[in-house]
Amino acid sequence: MRKENIKNTIGFLTGASDIVAIIGSLKRTAFGPFERFGNAVRPGQVPSLPTDSTDPRERFKVAARTHAVTEPEIGRRTRMTAWLFWLPATAGFAFIGLALANACNHDFNGTVTTGCAMSMCFMLALKHGFANYQFRNRALLSFREYLNEANLLPKFKKEGGRS
């Protein structure tokens, strides 16, 4: 028998492999949300583009050319990201009502479940709102700039023009 097979057999017979799996699962459950939150707010790698420019508008133009995205396609994506913002946002508000109703009925399992669905809907809405912000400004702006924007709601047209 190989060393690895002996180790697996001993782990199975003693229950040690189950204990290690449970500890790993608990660790991922306890620390996973913090790790994901850190990844969300930590500045990530900026994808390389065939330009040395740091201007967000110029980088948007180069990215559009690189990925063969035309002006009419940018207009279509602006409208689609607006719709993709409003659909989950509306569902998120419905989940708020459902969570409140569950809380009033002392159904805390239902409250937690609908709260999770609500947060998922709002995260999707935020993602598409950010994409809409970049498309309508025609610039690869940062998420921080989007959050500093006075009006986070997406628009169906390019700012200052037709789309």
Rank of each mutant, 00 (worst) to 15 (best):
H128K: 08
F95D: 00
T9A: 13
G110W: 01
V112R: 12
A82G: 03
G92S: 07
R136N: 09
L87S: 07
N151G: 05
T14L: 06
T70L: 06
M1P: 01
K158P: 00
A101Q: 12
H67D: 15
T29S: 11
T54L: 12
M120K: 13
L98T: 10
A150N: 14
F85M: 01
I96R: 02
I19H: 07
S25E: 07
N8V: 04
I74H: 01
E71C: 07
F143N: 02
I10C: 07
R79D: 02
C104V: 08
P56Y: 09
E159T: 14
E35V: 12
T70G: 08
R59L: 06
N105W: 06
W86V: 03
S53R: 07
M118F: 06
G160C: 12
T66C: 04
L87M: 13
T90Q: 04
R79H: 09
L152K: 07
I74F: 04
I74R: 07
D52R: 12
E73G: 07
R144T: 10
P47G: 03
G32S: 09
F93A: 13
A89I: 03
S119G: 09
A64Q: 06
V112I: 14
L13F: 10
T113G: 05
R28G: 05
Q45G: 08
D107Q: 13
K7R: 15
G160Y: 08
A150Y: 08
E145Q: 15
M80L: 15
K155Q: 12
V41I: 15
R59A: 03
G97P: 01
E71M: 12
R162D: 13
G24V: 02
N5R: 15
S142Y: 00
P154M: 01
A99T: 11
K7G: 00
G38Q: 12
K157H: 12
K155P: 01
L147F: 08
R138T: 02
I6R: 13
P154S: 02
R42K: 15
E145H: 11
P154L: 00
S142G: 12
A40D: 10
A101P: 00
L49R: 04
R2Q: 11
V62L: 04
L84D: 08
G129P: 00
L153Q: 06
A94S: 10
L98K: 10
T54K: 13
E73Q: 15
R57Y: 01
R77N: 09
L147R: 10
R65A: 14
A82F: 09
A21D: 04
V46A: 14
A63F: 06
G44S: 14
